[in-house]
């Protein structure tokens, strides 16, 4: 038996773990994007209070938020193929269930999970935008979608950004459960390595370091975006003389 704790190995094996960082990030980014779009749709349904749909959305959010992500991943991995096979026999379609990569099941589960949480964040952010501005947009003749895209979303995004960043960080760590869908990402790769070396503890320490560093980087990225979307503190007075000159140039053109 060698050392109790191989300190060097913790760092030496990081590169081989990082080989699977792209898989982790793909899982996280795709799930985030799908979750955001779904969440936005759900949020609009809730804000617009679309009668029956509203009840379905509430039920959906309640179920998704009320069950563990690990259980949801298993349900996606076993449930979706079962459902497709059922459709195959019932409707005579020919979905090649065995050909569907586990990655898709993982994304489906993570995105659905994400959408339920995102929905509430987005709804709160959309509703934080002053109604008066929406009325002003309407009075100009904008449709709800135009106002949403041009006026409401740009303001809501700034409000939602810290919470969305937070949930993205949570999501990145949730991807470590994707092994349940037979996806090899960083954590799964760590287990494979440890299965060879029997150095489980070192691998988990390596993984902890990697996830932590990623989180720090993403926090910085969020801060950068927050600064970028903030309005400037001061603006210079526009020089009317220069404007007149510019207008004259245009008049000559």
């Amino acid at each position: 038996m060698g050392k109790m704790f191989d300190f060097g190995l913790v760092f030496r094996q990081i590169p081989s773990l990082l080989q699977y960082l792209p898989v982790t990030m793909e899982l996280a980014v795709i799930s985030m994007l799908v979750g955001l779009i779904l969440g936005l749709l759900l949020a609009i349904i809730k804000i617009k209070n679309v009668g029956f749909l509203n009840k379905i959305v509430n039920f959906y959010i309640s179920v998704v938020r009320g069950t563990p992500i690990l259980v949801q991943l298993y349900i996606a991995y076993f449930g979706i193929p079962m459902f497709l096979r059922y459709i195959n026999t019932k409707l005579g379609t020919d979905y090649q269930v065995a050909d569907i990569p586990g990655f898709l099941y993982a994304v489906a589960a993570l995105a659905i999970n994400q959408s339920a949480f995102e929905c509430e964040v987005i709804r709160a952010a959309l509703q934080s935008v002053d109604r008066g501005q929406i009325e002003a947009a309407n009075s100009l003749g904008m449709t709800y979608l135009q106002a949403l895209r041009r006026i409401i979303l740009p303001e809501a995004i700034q409000v939602a950004l810290p919470s969305l960043g937070n949930s993205f960080i949570t999501l990145i760590k949730s991807t470590s459960l994707a092994f349940t869908c037979a996806v090899v990402e960083m954590t799964a790769q760590g287990k494979i390595i440890a299965g060879r070396t029997y150095r489980y503890f070192e691998v988990y320490v390596s993984l902890a370091i990697i996830y932590w560093v990623i989180t720090i980087l993403i926090e910085q990225l969020i801060k950068f975006f927050e600064k970028k979307t903030a309005l400037p503190e001061q603006v210079a007075i526009y020089n009317p003389e220069r404007a007149l000159a510019a207008q004259e140039v245009q008049a000559h053109d």
Partner: peptide, 17 residues
């Protein structure tokens, strides 16, 4: 109808961003 009417509000309601 809204295209043919313009509205000025008590509290301005300019687009903040």
């Amino acid at each position: 109808l809204r295209k043919q009417t313009g509205m000025v509000f008590q509290r301005f309601h300019l687009f903040e961003k």
